[in-house]
Structure formats: structure tokens, C-alpha cells
Design a protein around this nucleic acid. Structure first.
Lengths: 143, 143
DNA sequence: ATAATAAACAGAAAAAGTTTCTATTTAGGA
DNA sequence: TCCTAAATAGAAACTTTTTCTGTTTATTAT
């Protein structure tokens, strides 16, 4: 559940970083807030095509990186060759991870992140993390 | 420091999975055991060129995937677009994760995995996990 | 040791995803 | 409203990975 407040907060964060508040950026933020957990550049681009008759894929790439730089989005590495972006930043209300069952392919959320209290490691100030677990779900364990 | 024993163990694991013990596969295993923590397909290919005058990059890709499938190597996601492979699997002596600096792109190892003792979550029997952290490295924090 | 066979291979070509380039448009400040 | 730097589209280039085809090789059975 997302409030209008956090939406405007994001838009303000653009200004704070000296970035322009363009229609495409607003649409991208809106898209991430309203729908999926994480999206590839191409997925974002396809959605934006529904709103803007002209919309270049390079712009989408650039905007996603801009949004990462000002802390609105996070880059997420998944097992494919594609880039992935999401709002699942540490401290965000949506922060969570996933566990997949290697038997049936089912995906569940891990709501209790075991890493939120790690803010410093190896001299790094930790800003974000991505955790993916796999194993055998309760249903498949029974069989 | 890796013993000859674990080398032969790896070679046996090829056989157990019905894979042939080819010179290139032996060389790849030897390479990972002897040198770096993780390598890209291209890095492996360049090393192999020193040993084999004929050595195709597609073969390197195929072999790396074969070695993943029989549990010798692990795929590692880093912040670039390249594939990375290493001997780092859960339970393995090399198990570890990575943290990347969002400013300079530097990658460091997190040797102390904070998740090794998590064997059950959300009803799942946890078998494996992938953790990727990002933040600002000590050097960039100073500037 | 040899032959048979399925897997592994090289090299070329194609595909997928991302980035760069150039000229045009637009958001935000003067 | 005008100005300027940032943002944009579209084309093209680029990097990395995968597919394809025909040839070679490791292993199994003889």
C-alpha cells in the first residue's frame, strides 16, 4: 500500500539531486510504485509505450540509472543477463526478499529480512542488499 | 590452498554426472583451483589459449555451465554485464558473497556469511542463497 | 587394441541486451 | 517569455552470449 506522500517524496528527491521532473521519470516512478516488485528496462519501456507514443529505450536506460543515483531505485542482479530495478531499498516499506522452491518453482516472500540491521561491513557503508534464497517448500517436503 | 584430493574429487564428480573428462574441462577446473576467486568466461578463455592453440569461446561457455550443473562451479552475479563463475557454493569452503561500491564499482568479498545458520524459513528447507550487497566503500566515504 | 557412438569441439554467424552518438526538444530558472 | 543545460528519439555501434554446422575426441563395448 503506497501513499501519495511517498510518491511526492520521490519526486522531491529528483529535485534535490538536480534532476528534472520529466513526464517519463514521473511515469517510471509511478510504474514502480503501482505495480511490480522489480522490472527490467525493457519491461519499463513496454509499459511506457502505452502512455507515450514516442519513447526511446535509451531514455529508459538513462532514467533508470538516474533514479538509482538519487536513491529512488535499486539495481538488482538476477540470474539472467538483463538488468533489474526495483523500489526494494533497505528501509523502504516494501523491502523484502524471495525464496524459490527448486522442486515446484513456487516463489514466496521472506518478510522478515535477516539483514536489515547490517549497516556496515568490510568498511563499507551498506546502502542496499539483495537476497535470494532457494530450497524446498513445505508442500514439496511432505511428498 | 587446495589439495590434490579435492581436484580428483571434482574430476570424479564429472564422471558421476555422465560428463566426459576432457582436457579443456580439466584445465578449467585446474584454473579455478589454482588462481582467482571468480572468473568471467572471457578470462577463462584467455587463460586456456595459453595451453590450447585451438580453443573456442563457445566451448568455454558450455563447459562453465556444465560445471555449474554438476556442482563444481557456482554462477555469481556481479554488477557488470558479464557472467562470473567461482568455486563458491554453500557448504563449500569458498562460500562467500560480494559487496559492490555504487560510486567506484569496486567489488569486495564478504567472507563472513551472515546467513549460513539459516536452514529453515517460511516453511522452506533452505538449501542455497545468493546475497549481494551494495554501498559506499571506505575509500569513497573519505572523499 | 580397435571400432562405434555420443558428447565435445571450433569457427562462423546470429541474437540479445546495452551504450554511444547526433540532432532535436523540453523543463526550470532568469 | 527567453535562455540554457538537461533530456529525448532514433539510429547505429558495441559487448556479451547463444545457436548452428560440420568435425574431432573421450569413452564404452568389442
Amino acid at each position: 500500500m503506497l501513499s501519495l506522500d511517498s510518491h511526492t517524496q520521490y519526486l522531491n528527491r529528483l529535485k534535490d539531486n538536480g534532476l528534472k521532473l520529466t513526464p517519463r521519470r514521473q511515469a517510471i516512478i509511478h510504474l514502480f510504485m503501482g505495480s511490480a516488485v522489480h522490472l527490467t528496462p525493457e519491461e519499463v519501456w513496454k509499459k511506457l509505450h502505452q502512455q507515450f507514443e514516442k519513447c526511446g529505450l535509451p531514455s529508459v536506460y538513462r532514467n533508470l540509472e538516474s533514479l538509482v543515483e538519487c536513491g529512488i531505485l535499486a539495481r538488482i542482479q538476477l540470474a539472467d543477463r538483463k538488468k533489474h530495478y526495483g523500489l526494494c531499498t533497505v528501509g523502504h516499506e516494501h523491502h523484502h526478499h524471495h525464496i524459490t522452491c527448486i522442486k515446484c518453482g513456487r516463489v514466496d516472500e521472506i518478510s522478515d529480512c535477516p539483514l536489515t540491521n547490517i549497516t556496515e561491513i568490510n568498511g563499507y557503508q551498506v546502502l542496499n542488499h539483495f537476497l535470494q534464497m532457494s530450497g524446498i517448500c513445505s508442500h514439496c517436503l511432505e511428498n
